[in-house]
Computed example of a mutant assay.
Amino acid sequence: MKYIIVGIGNFGGYLAKRLTNLGHEVIGVDSSESRIEMIKDSITHSIVMDATDQAAVKNLPLKETDVVIIAIGEDIGASIMSTAIFKQLKSKRIIARAINDLHETVIQAIGVDEIIHPEEETADRLSKRLEMKGVLDSLEISDEYNIVEVKVPARYVDLSVADADIRKEFYLNILTIIKIEQKKNLLGINTPHKNVIGVVTPDYTFESDDILLLFGKIKNIQEFLKLGD
């Protein structure tokens, strides 16, 4: 797919690099030459441009672009103006970042397809992780269901998935198992990286450093977490 990301700050820049690494074509747009200079070698295309200038925006390949993401996070006025311009130019799909309630109301009135709140979503995930002791990360599916990462309880180490039978005891599904590996970064410093083993088979034997990716009802996850107390 082809994406245009407007606003290459911390959020927009990271998103642009992630989408590029996933094999998508990404055009990064920012009025800051220094930001574009920092990211130009990491994404498909990068352009220094004022996205509030309609004449300049018209030169972008909007007809061939699947999604426009307005990721501007500092200048609400610029975010609103650029969103309105991309909407007026009939972009196929617009996802816009909202900084506060008023900002959200305005871009909602413009008619974007989706509104995101990166800071709120990150804070929400962190608060849920801190609330549930033993959870390394979580993703809320609904008010009733969650996906969580949790260290394998000691009682299951050296048992097979079939023998542990977590699904029968706690009504939880093991989506996969994650192992943490140390890899050197550009500075030569060892940093942790997740290695996902894929589909879990019944004969897989749990190891002490395994991280389980579990799906199920929140109340059942909470019962499972008590095993680590």
Rank of each mutant, 00 (worst) to 15 (best):
E74K: 00
E25K: 15
I197P: 02
A96Q: 06
L136T: 10
K40S: 07
K92T: 11
L213D: 08
S79R: 07
I147M: 13
D209Q: 11
G134A: 02
L175A: 14
G23L: 05
I4L: 11
L22F: 12
V161L: 11
R167Q: 11
V112A: 09
F11K: 05
M49D: 05
G9Q: 05
E64C: 08
P61F: 14
F206S: 02
A96L: 08
D137H: 10
K2E: 15
L22R: 10
S79M: 06
I95K: 08
K40N: 01
S46A: 15
N220Y: 12
G13H: 09
R129G: 04
V26W: 03
V161S: 12
Y14P: 02
S32P: 07
D50L: 05
E114V: 13
R129Q: 06
N146I: 06
L212T: 12
T205Q: 13
E25Q: 14
T205D: 08
A84D: 02
D143Y: 03
V150C: 05
L89S: 10
D143P: 00
S46R: 03
D165W: 13
G198Y: 12
E169M: 08
F215K: 09
H24M: 06
E33R: 06
A16F: 10
Q108K: 11
L159Q: 15
E120Q: 10
V152E: 02
I5K: 03
F86N: 03
F224S: 02
I94G: 04
N10F: 13
L15P: 04
D137Y: 04
L214I: 14
I70R: 04
A164D: 12
K2L: 13
Q108D: 12
T52D: 03
